[in-house]
Amino acid sequence: MSGKKDRQLPKADRSPKKKLKVDVTAFWRRKKDMSTAAKAKKIKEKEKELERLKRQQQDQEELEESSEEESLDMEKIARLLEKHSKEIKAYTDEALKKQSKELSKEIQDIKKELTDSIDGIKTLVEGNTKQLKEHNVKIEKLEGWRVGADDKFEILQTEVRSRNVKIRGAPESFGKEDLKKELTEAIASYLEEEEVKIEKAYRVNSRAAKRNNQPRDILVGFESKSAKNALQGKHREDPFTLEDQEVKIFQDLPPEILQKRAQFHFLRQILIGQNIRYFWKIPFALEVILPTGRRIIKTLQQAQELADTLAEGSALAEEQRKQTSQQEHKGVARKGAGTRK
């Protein structure tokens, strides 16, 4: 039984051989299929490469064609430009001529307008100049009238104050009881007169006196100019005292005249320094007595010119004085040297 079993293989034992045969066949078949697929793949790659080369060739041909077309277009444009250059030049020249004519006409019109405007301005200026001259004449007349009115007003004010004087420096204690009475007696005694008639006498308040803590001025009004002139005349020679205090006496002048005189202070200093006589005049003016004659000064410009002239003359005189002094000194020195010999 066992031998029989050994000799007879089961079906299961025989199937591997058969399967191996089938597998070898399938292997060669797959190998054949793989070789065919590889060949097909290569063929496809070559086809793609051919298509790429074709496209490159087509692009190159199109580029060459476009270059040829551009070259042709440029030649065409050049021919067209050459053909129409004369027409363009002729048209341009004609347009320029037309514009030049129009511009020239506009310039002529502008020139004409400017000429007319200038003529109108000249006429207007001439008319205004004439009117200004007429106005200036009127202004000068009005100024003359104003100056004349001012002068008359100054004369009137001065005349009203012509009998008045101001006494400065009198102690505040003087005239406490009766200023007019005490001052009348003091002036009569000073002038050695039995009686002096005074219309008014009172203290004048001022900012300067209050600021400097000084006694207020006394305004005195005489009944006659002779009494006032007598007081001022004697005061130039003899001092006048009130309560043992020496006082000063000034002419009573309008504030406007005092302000004008204050502006000439620099010239008065020069005149006093050079011992040149001068007088105040009414209406306002300064009369200067010069070696060359009298000179009337009314304006600041005239005062400045005279001050400059006097300053130059003073400098020249000082230089001449120095030169004379040096010459005299040299002469004395020579005489001394001659005596020693």
Rank of each mutant, 00 (worst) to 15 (best):
I282H: 05
K298D: 01
D178K: 04
D33G: 08
P171M: 08
N136G: 12
E243G: 07
A262R: 09
A37R: 03
I270D: 02
I218P: 03
S2C: 09
D109Y: 11
Q263K: 15
H84N: 06
V160H: 14
E62G: 00
L231R: 02
I43M: 15
Q60A: 10
F27Y: 11
K281Y: 00
L9D: 14
K200H: 09
P10H: 00
L179V: 11
D59W: 05
N136C: 11
K42M: 11
P10T: 01
E194I: 00
S224R: 13
L253A: 09
L286P: 01
K141P: 07
P16H: 05
L142C: 10
T324F: 06
K41Q: 08
I139K: 13
E68T: 07
F240Y: 08
S66R: 09
S162H: 07
M74P: 00
R277G: 06
R203M: 06
K141R: 15
R30C: 09
Q251K: 12
E305V: 02
D217C: 15
G120I: 00
A95M: 05
L179C: 12
T184E: 06
E192G: 11
K11V: 15
Q131I: 00
I167N: 04
K176E: 14
G336I: 12
K76E: 01
N275L: 04
D116C: 01
R340S: 03
R168Y: 04
I276K: 05
K248E: 13
L258R: 08
Q58I: 06
Q245F: 07
Q57P: 00
E47G: 06
Q269C: 12
L310Q: 02
Q323T: 04
Q269H: 06
A12I: 15
Q108L: 13
R261L: 10
K248T: 13
P10Y: 00
L310M: 05
L9V: 07
K17Q: 14
S66C: 07
D109N: 14
T25H: 10
A170M: 08
K31P: 03
E51P: 02
F279Y: 09
L191S: 02
A90W: 05
E65N: 02
T309C: 04
L53V: 11
D6G: 14
K281S: 01
P10Q: 00
K48Q: 10
L72G: 07
A285M: 07
G175V: 04
S314L: 02
K341T: 06
V165P: 13
I276P: 05
E113R: 08
S71R: 07
R30D: 14
D73L: 06
E195A: 11
F279L: 11
S2G: 11
E64V: 02
G338M: 08
A201E: 05
A170S: 09
A262Y: 05
L191M: 01
T158L: 06
K18H: 14
S35P: 03
E113M: 09
D59L: 05
P215G: 15
A201G: 03
I276D: 04
I167D: 09
E193R: 15
D119N: 14
T309H: 09
L231I: 05
R161K: 13
E143R: 15
L310P: 02
K41L: 10
T324V: 07
G313K: 10
D116V: 05
E140Y: 04
A149G: 05
G331Q: 06
L72S: 12
